[in-house]
Simulated scan of single mutants.
Amino acid sequence: MTSSSRFAGKIALVTGAGRGIGRGTAEALYEQGAQVIALDIIEENLQNLKNKYPEITTVQVNLGDWKATKEAIGSLPTVDLLVNNAGVYRMGSILDVCEEDISLHLDVNLKAYLNVAQVLARKLIAEKRMGTFVNVASVCANKPFGKSGAYCISKSGVQMLTEVLACELGPHGIRVNGINPGVVNTDMSKMVGETDKRILIERTPLGRIGEVPDVVHGILYLLSDDSSYMNGHSLVVDGGLLKF
């Protein structure tokens, strides 16, 4: 039993759905009537989600593996709503970034977004169905932050990917938008040192870091018909951090 029918009749895929923003999004979509497919690399996280919501379909795959991802996504039913959310983050000076670091960030944070979107868009186009995609980027796509070089590079790529997909898929009735969160209270943000986090909070006019629902509400808006004339836009949800 769901609390709302906002997304009733829609099939939604959320990547990185095992925790954080992805899990919050998967739960919210389910509670608002969608048939949810939750994808993650960690089986335990998927099982915890499944225990709470037995009707959610779970898929375990390493998005950094192009072929395995394409096969996993290709086996799914046609998806109406996509939230490309899975991501990795390794701190470190740009002078210390090694090939493994940059490859990991690009494989998971950028190439996987394209891979998943390609497979799903082709199905929608073949069936002449409309769809809505949301790519989760970051304020790191808008502004460089120290010790986050590889992450910033990958997320700026996500923002351009959103615009390219919106341009090419729009004529087929598929809208593609992005969301750029600031620092959000998730496991990933715990990798940011307390000193750096305090500085970011001091620079944020609202005086706090974001919570998962702050971002989820934005994602749901972009997925819904309330944003039906938005395409190729990246919605910044950062408490004003980038403005000051």
Rank of each mutant, 00 (worst) to 15 (best):
Ala38Asn: 03
Ile41Tyr: 04
Glu43Thr: 00
Glu44Met: 02
Glu44His: 04
Asn45Met: 09
Asn45Ser: 14
Asn45Glu: 15
Leu46Cys: 07
Leu46Tyr: 06
Leu46Met: 05
Gln47Pro: 00
Leu49Glu: 09
Lys50Asn: 06
Lys50His: 08
Asn51Leu: 03
Asn51His: 01
Asn51Val: 01
Tyr53Arg: 11
Tyr53Phe: 15
Tyr53His: 14
Pro54Arg: 08
Glu55Val: 06
Glu55Met: 04
Ile56Phe: 12
Ile56Lys: 07
Gln60Glu: 08
Val61His: 03
Val61Met: 07
Gly64Tyr: 00
Gly64Asn: 00
Trp66His: 05
Trp66Tyr: 10
Lys67Gln: 14
Ala68Val: 11
Lys70Asn: 01
Lys70Asp: 05
Glu71Ser: 09
Ala72Cys: 00
Ile73Val: 15
Ile73Gly: 02
Gly74His: 06
Ser75Tyr: 13
Leu76Trp: 12
Leu76Ile: 08
Leu76Glu: 11
Thr78Trp: 12
Leu81Gly: 05
Leu82Tyr: 12
Gly87Asp: 13
Gly87Ser: 12
Tyr89Gly: 07
Ser93Val: 10
Ile94Val: 14
Ile94His: 00
Ile94Trp: 04
Leu95Asn: 15
Leu95Gln: 13
Leu95Glu: 15
Asp96Arg: 00
Asp96Gln: 07
Val97Leu: 12
Val97Ala: 10
Cys98Tyr: 05
Glu100Asn: 04
Asp101Glu: 10
Asp101Arg: 02
Ile102Arg: 08
Leu104Lys: 03
Leu104Ser: 07
His105Thr: 09
Leu106Ala: 03
Asp107His: 06
Asn109Arg: 03
Asn109Cys: 08
Leu110Lys: 00
Leu110Cys: 04
Ala112Pro: 13
Tyr113Ile: 04
Asn115Gly: 03
Asn115Cys: 14
Val116Trp: 06
Val119Cys: 08
Val119Thr: 14
Val119Met: 06
Leu120Lys: 01
Leu120Arg: 00
Leu120Thr: 07
Arg122His: 04
Arg122Ser: 02
Lys123Ala: 08
Glu127Asp: 14
Glu127Asn: 14
Glu127Gln: 15
Lys128Cys: 06
Met130Arg: 02
Thr132Arg: 05
Thr132Lys: 05
Phe133His: 10
Phe133Gln: 07
Asn135Thr: 07
Asn135Cys: 08
Val136Ala: 10
Val136Ser: 12
Ala137Pro: 09
Ala137Arg: 02
Ala137Trp: 10
Ser138His: 08
Cys140Met: 09
Cys140Pro: 01
Ala141Gly: 07
Ala141Asn: 03
Ala141Tyr: 09
Asn142Ile: 01
Lys143Gly: 01
Pro144Ile: 07
Pro144Lys: 02
Pro144Trp: 09
Ser148Gln: 13
Ser148Trp: 05
Ser148Leu: 10
Ala150Ile: 15
Tyr151Thr: 12
Ile153Asn: 05
Ile153Arg: 05
Ser154Ala: 10
Ser154Tyr: 03
Ser154Asp: 02
Lys155Arg: 13
Ser156Met: 05
Ser156Tyr: 06
Ser156Asp: 10
Gly157Met: 11
Val158Glu: 09
Val158Asp: 06
Val158Asn: 03
Val158Pro: 08
Gln159Ile: 11
Leu161Val: 13
Thr162Ala: 00
Glu163Lys: 08
Leu165Gly: 08
Ala166Ile: 07
Ala166Trp: 07
Ala166Pro: 01
Cys167Gly: 05
